[in-house]
Design a protein around this nucleic acid. Structure first.
Lengths: 340, 340
DNA sequence: CGCCGTACGGACATCGTTGTCATGGAGTCG
DNA sequence: CGACTCCATGACAACGATGTCCGTACGGCG
């Protein structure tokens, strides 16, 4: 059990140096693992460091070197499954590369909020930033980002002046739609995420394109907003219709809401209606019925984003690449052949 | 659209001073809002700061002042609903108090992992730490935390040498159990979270105590591990029995799994079995049927934790308090009177 | 008119670390 | 054996901001 006491001055290099009978320079060399230090001296210094509980002062180090070994993450919400998983992966990747992570949440989708986050992160001294801009900002086509700072944007825009990491949303829309067509459904209805979302837009476009490529009718979309509640509302409005046999929901939560509405109306999934979700959240396997969905590799996206920023930090600007993480269909029990 | 360029040296106080024709101390005074600066001088300095894009160097400031205005958060996983919401609230509260936030995830529930996280955060220079230790560590009764550092622990232990913030888990177990008894169920079965979890333990104890206080039989627990999958397994094993009419699951995910198993077995919820969850996750309202559950105020917990650390940072050690956030029952459709 | 208090601005040292250069002793080669 | 290199180590300055101390100019007052 640690006991608590008032804060005291931490030992500095000079303290260690004095204790070991060397100059502070030598301590610095040992601390940084340089090789031009005598073996016995090195041992002595290490012993002193242990004994005094020496811990390098990151402020001084950063002041001198200009680098903090710290990357900033700016995002809008933790409450979406994708963001949460990605942050998890980002934290892990950063830690593996020896970077710590500063988190900043933006409370509204505006240019102002983005600038504010960037300013705070910059003031804090981050070496690079991973921005997760998943939706169009309400007051500007795209955020103004400062020059000369390594930034990776996670978004689905076609923007090319920064490295971009994203899941392959086009494939997601295509896989879901093809799966339902392959099962024999005449066409597939779609519940997209909010119109401002880049991912939602891409999935929707791919859904429509796939239908057209198969020569099928492209129905009106049944607008959702990512929430299960919106899926429920959509579900209520279509529960009476008999012509809808297959639905692709742009995320698992909306699929959950859809199924609740269908259950309430006494419809069977997949007997009356087949449903495909998107994201493959942990719980989707336990929905009733277990949900067929498109798996997104958020871990991979997070990892890629961190590697891209770190590469920029350490090697200078790179020609911005666009990295797409693969997706794949996970078939469970919410889809089946239409009734003959 | 920002253009990207190589990193250049940021303007310093001296640059601003030269540009404004004053000394760097005057710039410092202006930057810190001290009053002993002439009005016209002040204007001139502010103009120069804007023009040069001056941004105070946090490393230098921290080196001089010994404070970073940064708090660290160490936790085990983002994947639990509670942790995610709490981190969200922590980020917001920290930002409101002018603190930035450094996140570190521990990958296993061991003393080693905890020390590693603390070391990394300390190396990074945080002024205080919020530790979220929600389960017993496998290799030690409790983590050894360093002396002289403001720490707040979020956990359910009785530990008293640090401020502790937690939800009122005893009330959660009691409310859920009483609700089911009030509906007329003879007794209530329980699916606890993993035995290592402090919250799970408290909810379980409260459940048992409530039953005993009402003079009811306390059934064997149906062990779960927080996952929906574990709830499903438990559900399968009890779907055949007819004597179980009321279940309190220690979180919503397990309740979800339970309901899936019951559906598969053709049982009706709440007709045959009433179910109460815990946490009130966003999606629980869209489960089938919508889940009656105990709401936890994770936002409040996060806020309290931050306020406690900041208070310690700014005013020195306080006598450690134990803060309990309130919980309340949210009644939906998964509970009802037992069949006569 | 001379004294002092006050408002203002500058010089300097300092925080802990690291880059640069200097020093001195040991080893090498012609 | 002298000139040389090589290597461990130390002295010193610098990173950028800020606290302390001091000097100057100005206003008020006796």
């Amino acid at each position: 059990m640690g006991t608590r006491s008032v804060r005291v001055r931490e030992p500095s290099m000079n303290d260690v140096a004095r204790h070991a009978g060397v100059s502070s320079q030598t301590v610095s060399r040992v601390a940084n693992g340089l090789d031009n230090v005598g073996e016995s001296t090195k041992e002595r210094v290490l012993a002193s460091m242990r004994e005094l509980g020496y811990r390098p002062n990151s402020a001084a180090r950063a002041l001198r070197s200009g680098r903090f070994r710290d990357i900033g993450v700016a995002m809008f919400t933790l409450s979406s499954y994708g963001n949460m998983r990605m942050l998890d992966a980002i934290t892990q990747a950063a830690s593996e590369l020896g970077y710590s992570l500063t988190l900043d949440l933006m409370r509204e989708p505006t240019q102002r909020a983005v600038s504010g986050a960037v300013t705070r992160l910059l003031d804090q001294g981050v070496d690079g930033i991973v921005m997760m801009i998943e939706a169009e900002l309400t007051d500007s086509a795209m955020a103004e980002l400062p020059a000369g700072l390594p930034v990776v944007v996670n978004t689905s825009t076609a923007r090319t002046d920064y490295p971009v990491v994203d899941g392959d949303q086009a494939a997601a829309g295509r896989l879901a739609t093809e799966h339902l067509l392959d099962l024999g459904h005449r066409t597939v209805w779609h519940v997209p995420g909010p119109v401002s979302s880049y991912s939602a837009m891409r999935r929707r476009d791919a859904w429509a394109a796939t239908l057209r490529a198969a020569g099928r009718e492209v129905p009106e979309v049944l607008q959702g907003d990512w929430t299960a509640e919106s899926g429920y509302r959509v579900g209520l409005s279509i529960a009476e219709r008999d012509d809808i046999t297959a639905i692709f929901a742009s995320n698992d939560q909306m699929a959950l809401g859809l199924m609740r509405a269908l259950h309430e109306a006494g419809k069977d999934v997949p007997g009356d209606v087949s449903i495909v979700g998107c994201d493959d959240t942990t719980e989707s396997a336990s929905y009733w019925p277990p949900l067929t969905t498109v798996h997104q590799d958020f871990e991979e996206q997070g990892r890629q984003a961190v590697h891209a920023v770190v590469a920029e930090i350490e090697n200078g600007p790179v020609t911005p690449a666009r990295i797409l993480a693969p997706v794949w269909l996970v078939e469970r029990s919410s889809t089946g052949r239409p009734r003959a």
